[in-house]
Amino acid sequence: MVRPILSPAERERGRRLGATLRRARGDRSMVDVATAAGIPVETLRKIETGRIATPAFFTVAALGGVLGLDLAELALIALPTPAAESA
């Protein structure tokens, strides 16, 4: 399956999501968080660095649960910003 090329706005949303998850992780190791969420460590690494800009809903939900983040808050991060829309 060929994935479509992401727009600059989609890549920016992925970076914002990754930064939010990274901040929420705090001092916890990637291994601890990934294991608790039931995802590979490399997947968490790619999400946090923005290399996976559009992670699956259930992956985000699992990470949000482990990190104590509300899904509604995470959804707000995914909304396009006015600057990103004009890009």
Rank of each mutant, 00 (worst) to 15 (best):
G64P: 03
S86I: 12
A37Q: 03
A87R: 14
V33C: 11
F57Y: 14
E73W: 09
T49F: 10
A61M: 09
P55G: 05
V31S: 11
A24P: 03
A84N: 05
I5R: 15
T81R: 14
R25D: 06
D70K: 02
I5G: 08
I39P: 00
A87G: 14
T59H: 01
P82S: 05
R51V: 01
G64V: 03
A84S: 15
L74W: 08
A9T: 09
V2M: 14
T81G: 06
V31W: 13
I5S: 15
E10Q: 15
G64F: 03
L6S: 14
I47E: 01
S86M: 15
A75K: 14
L79Q: 11
G38K: 08
G38C: 05
L63K: 00
I5A: 15
P4C: 10
S7W: 05
I39N: 00
D27T: 11
A62K: 09
T20Y: 04
A9P: 01
L79R: 12
L71M: 15
G65R: 13
A37E: 10
R45A: 02
A75N: 08
L21R: 00
P40L: 12
A53E: 04
A61W: 06
S86V: 12
A84P: 07
I47V: 13
F58R: 08
L44M: 08
A19R: 08
R25I: 05
L17H: 01
R23M: 06
G50Y: 00
M30T: 06
G18D: 05
L74V: 05
M30P: 02
R28H: 12
A56G: 09
T59P: 04
R45P: 00
M30F: 07
G14E: 00
V31E: 14
G18I: 09
A56W: 04
P80C: 10
I5N: 13
A36L: 13
L76Y: 15
S7T: 15
E42S: 11
G18R: 01
M30W: 11
R13S: 13
A87M: 11
P4K: 13
F57H: 07
L6C: 12
R3I: 03
G64L: 03
G65V: 02
S29A: 09
F58E: 12
E42F: 04
L71N: 10
L63V: 02
T43L: 05
S86C: 11
G64C: 08
G26W: 06
T49Y: 11
G14Y: 02
A24G: 04
V66L: 05
R28Y: 10
A19N: 04
L69N: 02
L69I: 04
A72N: 03
E48I: 01
L17C: 05
T81C: 07
R15I: 06
A75F: 08
A78P: 01
V41Y: 11
R3K: 14
E48N: 03
I77F: 10
A72I: 03
A19M: 06
L44N: 01
I52N: 00
R13W: 01
T49I: 06
E73K: 04
R3Q: 13
V31T: 13
P40M: 15
P55I: 00
F58P: 02
E10W: 08
L69D: 01
I77D: 08
A83P: 00
V41S: 02
A84L: 12
S86H: 13
